[in-house]
Design a protein around this nucleic acid. Structure first.
Lengths: 166, 166
DNA sequence: ATCAATGCTTGCAGACCGCAACCATACTCT
DNA sequence: AGAGTATGGTTGCGGTCTGCAAGCATTGAT
């Protein structure tokens, strides 16, 4: 039972605005959300925290960016001491990345900042609505990922965009 | 009645992922969503469509970008024929921007593409859930805007150039 | 008439992105 | 083993989007 055209359009417009709004917040200037982490630290450190050591290419896939970009950003995080690398015992070409204590700390700080900001912005919300929204967003994310991986979005480019509406 | 810390954190993480995911779809390569519109056309043409003629500065506020950026993007849209400008009768410095028939057409096409994509990605959803999500997202957007305007982001930090790319 | 304020444009630089070329290592095949 | 290919990662390059600051033209107040 598919969605009605009106619902589809309304949802796509709302999501586009949300994405646009959020883009502004992940900007470099948003230190009230990042702490001392560079703006790209969050999507890289998060998989490293939850899934242990990863290779650069695996990290790139998780973060939805090109390996070359991940390589540069990881190098920056390494210089800043948030991440350390050791040679992969399985493969001499690869390195395994691990989050450092400092990285964990920065991640925790950033998480607290985000959480705090969310709390003040959503002061009028109750837990039930927030949970509903989180549930729906999570479901949306999995469906988006499925849709993107299922049908290549562009014939020419075979990049890995997990793009949605916006 | 404030949100619990767990809910806040979960929501902030989910929304961050959604924003990150959506970022890629506003890329220039996502012609399956933009049609022949440039990627920045959507957030500019949308206010022009709904609110009639606007000045460049008003448009920048609506789109959430700097006036200088809006100026450049509007110039591009004008060159492409999606927008036309006429002198503001009230003020010789300003121009009034209006969406052209071609702009309306492109906007309609883009809207249809987005709607179609949303329909396939959210194939398993029913109208009720989609409506719930759209309602919550809209409410979230208004609350975010309120929070942002209440405490201006420029107050938090000036620019913090930690150049890292190599 | 003068001078500050306003609307917009442009020069500049930063941040992020992907592609292509490249090197070193691993794997496959004969 | 040796040759050829595939893979992981890095770097050069260009492109896009962004904001800041300086500049220009017009407006409005003194």
């Amino acid at each position: 039972m598919p969605l009605s055209p009106e619902t589809r359009e309304r949802l796509s417009v709302s999501l586009a605005q949300l994405v646009r709004s959020g883009r502004h917040m992940s900007s470099r200037a948003a230190t009230h959300l990042h702490g001392d982490l560079p703006s790209f630290g969050w999507p890289l450190l998060l998989p490293l925290e939850s899934d242990g050591d990863l290779r650069c290419s695996a990290l790139a896939v998780r973060a939805g960016i090109d390996v070359s970009v991940a390589s540069r950003q990881v190098a920056a995080l390494e210089r800043a001491g948030y991440v350390e690398r050791r040679p992969d015992p399985q493969d001499g070409r690869a390195s395994l990345l691990r989050i450092t204590a400092r990285g964990l700390e920065a991640l925790t700080t950033s998480r607290a900042l985000r959480s705090e900001w969310t709390g003040t912005a959503l002061a009028g919300w109750d837990d039930a609505d927030a949970h509903r929204l989180a549930d729906l967003v999570d479901r949306l994310l999995t469906d988006i990922e499925r849709a993107v991986t299922a049908s290549p979005p562009s014939a020419a480019g075979h990049h890995d965009p997990q793009a949605v509406a916006g």
